[in-house]
Design a protein around this nucleic acid. Structure first.
Lengths: 239, 239
DNA sequence: CGAAAGGTTGAGTGCTGTCAACGTCCGTGG
DNA sequence: CCACGGACGTTGACAGCACTCAACCTTTCG
């Protein structure tokens, strides 16, 4: 991993006002500046490995990354997807419980865990932001457990697309004036399957079914257009 | 819900040294004492409802409770099981994302969220304990996602029994000198099914299969004895 | 242009859900 | 004390959804 010189200035950071650092004063930021390094991560590169000693933590500046775990025989489950301003790694703990891999080229602001832990202990406002973020992630993870434990393949795929639309959508208007949503998937079919607890073939079939039903369009492999938002909600099992 | 007089003394609390309150000095405990109330909860009673305004939080003093969510059409998923010294409720957030229901008669130390939030903001050591606990819960939830997304019914039941044994086991020795573990399940078959993302029939069949294979014994409806720990690990898919 | 990676479609199987009957345990009330 | 009813659990028959295996198509890249 190629370390670069210290972050030129947290003040100019694009996630300055959204990441947990937003709790800090300019002088505190200067200190943080000295212990963090901005590091580029290439698509497919794994930043942390499941089971490793937890020696690094980071803020995501740009790009999308996955968190994943595997069984002994190689079955994989994606347990989280993180976006700019999200926090990754396991502070205050000895081992990392899941791997972190870049889904797109990305940039992260990397800290050694020991330096970050020490800094965080001295800055309660930062810990508070981290607590809020962790509580939100826990709610999200538990909500996903409902999908994995109780939803059908059709419901899983529809739920996933709606969540992606919610996170990524460029709201536009179709020619007929009906609202439409288009976005680019940050995941391959295999990654969607690993997130949804399905196989690649089942994901593909469900997407085809939704397309043939006129509920979505798939202009290319990575693009999705939601044509009928109401039908999607029904497909997702939301009332 | 019947409120009782304020906790007579946190100093004497059985979870005093394990719950997040362990971060507090005697004088700080006195303050906390004034805003918390010890409340009994009967088996089956629901303390918080999914979707409600988050107006209460609590520490578990005694008993076992479940956290659960449901789909619009009534399918349920248990997303967590909490034990004495665990924290429940959603501080610093407006709504509760899952219901909390007692699996056994229980006692909790209840706070209004507003009072707790205010107290926590003023006591960084308490927030730090809460952060550690939340990070651990997040790791646990994400690990359970692997079970729900990727494991077979047999693996799920075996994994669940091993985790229960780990949490509850009275280590004993069988007559032949081989180590054995016996424990009482805090969950009914239906609740096990809701936790594992299975049906009650499938749980029952897998238990019968493990019993007939000589890997476990089921002395009565709620008791389990693990006869062959190694075989259980293999059944659980832990390589 | 060819190969490799990613994605779709089809045929068939099997695991787990559904529906139903039956068994067991326990508390209640005659 | 016994009869009854309800909650809980087990077992069986069957069906269907999702997985497996395989072929084929599309896109990308050397």
């Amino acid at each position: 991993m190629s370390y670069q010189k210290p972050v030129s200035g947290c003040q100019q950071c694009v996630v300055r006002n959204r990441a947990i650092c937003s709790s800090l004063s300019p002088s505190e930021l200067d200190v943080l500046n000295k212990i963090g390094r901005r590091v580029p991560v290439h698509r497919g590169q794994t930043l942390m490995w499941e089971g490793d000693d937890s020696s690094l933590v980071a803020n995501v500046i740009d790009g999308v990354l996955k968190l994943s775990t595997s069984t002994a025989d190689g079955r994989e489950q994606i347990v989280g997807v993180v976006y700019p301003s999200d926090f990754i790694g396991r502070p205050f703990g000895s081992t990392t419980q899941h791997s972190v891999t870049a889904l797109s080229d990305a940039q992260v602001c990397l800290f050694t865990r020991s330096a970050f832990d020490e800094f965080a202990r001295a800055h309660p406002e930062l810990e508070h932001k981290l607590l809020q973020r962790t509580l939100t992630e826990l709610d999200r993870a538990r909500h996903w457990m409902l999908l994995l434990g109780r939803k059908s393949a059709g419901e899983r795929v529809a739920t996933f697309l709606l969540e992606m639309a919610h996170r990524l959508a460029d709201a536009t208007c179709a020619a007929n004036g009906q609202p439409a949503e288009r976005f680019e998937l940050p995941l391959s079919r295999q990654q969607m399957a690993d997130l949804l607890g399905l196989t690649i073939e089942t994901v593909s079939r469900q997407l085809t079914r939704l397309r043939q039903a006129g509920i979505i369009d798939l202009p290319d492999r990575r693009a999705v257009v939601i044509l009928d938002h109401e039908a999607m909600e029904a497909e997702a099992g939301n009332g």
